[in-house]
Simulated assay, not measured.
Amino acid sequence: MSMSTTGSSEPAMAVFWDNVKTILYALALAMVLRFTIAQPFRIPSGSMQPTLEIGDYIVVTKWSYGYGRFSFAPLEGLLPHGRLFGSAPHQGDVVVFRPTPEPDRDFIKRVIGMPGDRIQMIDGVLHINGQAVQREALGVIDFENEDGFIERIPAYRETLPNGVSYTVFDKNPRSELDNTRVYEVPEGHYFMMGDDRDNSADSRVPSVVGYVPYDNLVGPAQFVVVSFDGTTSLFRPWTLFTGFRGERFLKAVE
Rank of each mutant, 00 (worst) to 15 (best):
S203D: 04
I141V: 11
H127D: 02
N145D: 15
V125F: 04
A252R: 12
Q120H: 13
P115W: 03
A73Y: 04
D123L: 13
W63T: 12
R236A: 12
F70P: 02
D147F: 12
R135P: 02
F70W: 08
V140W: 03
L126Q: 03
G219E: 00
F235E: 15
M193R: 01
P80L: 12
D196N: 15
G66H: 01
T36G: 08
Y183C: 08
E136D: 15
V59I: 11
S207R: 10
D229M: 09
I141G: 07
L217C: 06
L52T: 02
G210L: 07
E136R: 11
R181H: 10
P74M: 09
Y156W: 11
T36N: 09
I119Y: 02
A252D: 06
K251S: 10
G246C: 06
N179K: 13
M121R: 06
L177W: 08
P220A: 13
P89F: 01
E10S: 12
A38F: 01
S9N: 10
E184A: 13
V140C: 05
M121P: 03
F149W: 11
E146R: 09
I54E: 09
E187G: 15
F249D: 11
T167F: 07
F70G: 01
V218G: 02
F143L: 13
I119H: 01
Y65G: 00
L52Q: 01
H81K: 10
K21W: 10
R204S: 10
L217M: 05
T61A: 07
F191H: 02
V133N: 04
I58K: 00
S233P: 07
E146G: 07
L84F: 08
K21Q: 14
L79T: 03
L75H: 05
L27G: 08
S233G: 10
V205E: 06
G46A: 14
K21E: 14
T242K: 12
G124M: 06
R197L: 09
V164W: 03
M13S: 13
R34Y: 09
D117R: 01
V168I: 12
N216M: 07
L240N: 07
I108M: 05
D196H: 14
V225H: 02
V60W: 00
D196Y: 08
F149E: 15
V60I: 11
Y190M: 04
A38W: 01
Y25K: 08
Y65I: 05
G66I: 04
S8H: 15
H189I: 10
E146Q: 14
Q39D: 08
G77R: 03
L177K: 06
P237Q: 12
N145W: 04
K62W: 02
L234P: 03
S47W: 01
